[in-house]
Design a binder for these strands. Sequence first.
DNA 1: TTTGATTTTGAGCGACTGTTCAAGTTAAAA
DNA 2: TTTTAACTTGAACAGTCGCTCAAAATCAAA
Lengths: 195, 195
Amino acid sequence: MANKVKFERENVIRVASQLFWEKGFIATSTRDLQEAINMRPGSIYAAFGSKEGLYSESLKDYTVQMKSQIDGFLASSDTVVGGLRAFVENVIIKTKDCSPSAICMLVKANSEFAEKDASLYELSLDLSAKFEAYLTTLFAQAIKNNELSSNLTALEYAQFFQVQFTGLRGYFNRPRVEQLAQPMINQMFALIKKL
Amino acid sequence: MANKVKFERENVIRVASQLFWEKGFIATSTRDLQEAINMRPGSIYAAFGSKEGLYSESLKDYTVQMKSQIDGFLASSDTVVGGLRAFVENVIIKTKDCSPSAICMLVKANSEFAEKDASLYELSLDLSAKFEAYLTTLFAQAIKNNELSSNLTALEYAQFFQVQFTGLRGYFNRPRVEQLAQPMINQMFALIKKL
DNA sequence: TTTGATTTTGAGCGACTGTTCAAGTTAAAA
DNA sequence: TTTTAACTTGAACAGTCGCTCAAAATCAAA
């Protein structure tokens, strides 16, 4: 009995995610989405309930992708800090031009849904908190490995990392000579080791 | 002969600026604006040409306000770095709750107008460049006064400042115990003096 | 007071928005 | 092959968007 679904859910979410990341939630119309993911309104609403539902899935998927990207760099690096550094270089320098936006999708979400009661605002806060917790475990490992001093707690290192990383991405959102990026990343990691 | 304009142009722009800063360009409807600035469509379009025209004026006014705010703190401080510090503390801690957004309006604009040919994108880039140039003159003065070493150029200090400041504002956009803000600002300025 | 250029008003235009749903299509079960 | 539940389609809805413009209101000059 029944028919099978034609679309591949994961792939659809990933494509939608790119579009939402680039244009933001409000500026992405359902017609834009229809074309990008090749689905008609009825199917989209049957599968995701609403534009908000699809965005919600997209934002969650984004954080999963980010974490798995970091895990990949950690796996091919001797140290935790080295892995994070490779990740930062990859985001700011190497994948800058093929990325929908220089700015983290979570940061964009946090600034778009400023109205404090919206459910997408709650979601973006929740995902941000979980990402910080994930980073904290990484820095805890780095301290344990004696890569970093224990002058700061793992959480404080994670906070410092986020401030630096967000700041750099915001700065290199504006077009600049890319020669500036590498020295500023070097500076960031030199500072981390001196904290 | 003729009639006089009823509205005060500067005041109208300032109110519109607050609304645009909070909600973004796209999410702010012309009806929202009509209510906020108490003008009917015909008057708005006679005075500013379009929604884009009013936003453009609002963004320019925002940077003027920021600069004059910094100048104010500089005037009541012994040192350039002290003035900048007072400014940062004012933005992140003191005026956090009465500000339309924790995130700089220019940064929001830069991330909203990602399509590279739009005129508002060009404007936000131009204003960002001018603001960086302004900061650079301040740091040049700080170096001249021996407040800061000359290991870095004035431009490099300005870049560092912007990365830190943008990063901190992005971080404290998410709700957190405000006790975290002051130590992180202290850290920022401790780092600047050690560069 | 009359004149007439200027400003303000707000109903309304065409385009676009997120979403719905009846009709059509599909394929596993009978 | 027939049945039937699940899935897909796309026309269409009610609402909102940025914006226009004829008409009303305003006030300095004559």
